[in-house]
Design a protein around this nucleic acid. Structure first.
Lengths: 132, 132
DNA sequence: TAACGTTATGTAATAATATAACATTTATAA
DNA sequence: TTATAAATGTTATATTATTACATAACGTTA
């Protein structure tokens, strides 16, 4: 059993919002949604996001500047992330294919670099959008 | 033999700058550097960048909001990109490991999605920074 | 070459994303 | 309980990117 991080007040408010949304959310959309709970400034949002990313509760979708709740229950820290992104409806899901994740985690080349982290984003059309 | 894109004036100025720099460059740093050549506005830079990305002459490093010249001579369009990024010195190189690139290009899962593009970013410490 | 559509350019304004700096409060642990 | 770290609050500002509109250059083909 892994240690649970206890979230602070702001962290919890913001994580719950992202988690309930079921998809990626942008920082200023989060801000707008939590203003009624007393979080008024961008920095309050970004600080909570930074922490949530650090502990692996959420991931940043770099190509979209958006944040999504971790969909992989065993993922405590975000060192190996992969997403599929529909370029039409912008739906995002986390890829949990263990063969892929292991392949990438063990990847090394002759550059002399030691990789400690990676992020992979696949783009295409989801099932729904393909059939339109 | 593949068709060469002939670059417009602004596209050429901006591509040459990025290419000569040998590393990733940020949009506003590009802007600053090309002002003496008559490119005065952010939009002029972003338009050229968009086009250069589209035709595969440069790639965007999403996690850094920066642009780097394509280091893979056979890369005409950016549909399959992989980079290694040093988190200490911010050096970036394009990974050309064909086994990796093929593995990812042929990746599919049971989501019903058809992937037409991907971007992979590895993070770690480069040889130099490791030994410090 | 004239007319047309497409691509590129120029310019101003503004939107969207993110961080710096500083003061204060709350939680944790020695 | 006192010291330390973590989190919060607030204002201002930096950085990244796009909208909207007008004009010019280029390529095709009639």
């Amino acid at each position: 059993m892994q240690k649970e991080h206890s979230l602070s007040k702001n962290q919890k408010i913001i994580f719950d919002l992202i988690d309930k949304s079921g998809g990626p959310m942008k920082a200023y959309s989060i801000l707008f949604n939590v203003q009624k709970k007393g979080i008024k400034a961008p920095l309050q949002v970004y600080r909570a996001l930074d922490k949530l990313v650090e502990i692996g509760k959420i991931h940043k979708i770099e190509s979209r500047n958006a944040f999504i709740a971790c969909q992989n229950s065993s993922c405590q820290v975000s060192k190996a992330t992969a997403f599929s992104i529909c370029e039409s409806c912008e739906n995002v899901s986390e890829i949990s294919n263990s063969k892929l994740l292991k392949y990438l985690s063990s990847f090394s080349d002759n550059s002399g670099m030691k990789y400690s982290k990676y992020n992979l984003e696949f783009f295409g059309l989801c099932k729904k959008c393909k059939s339109k």
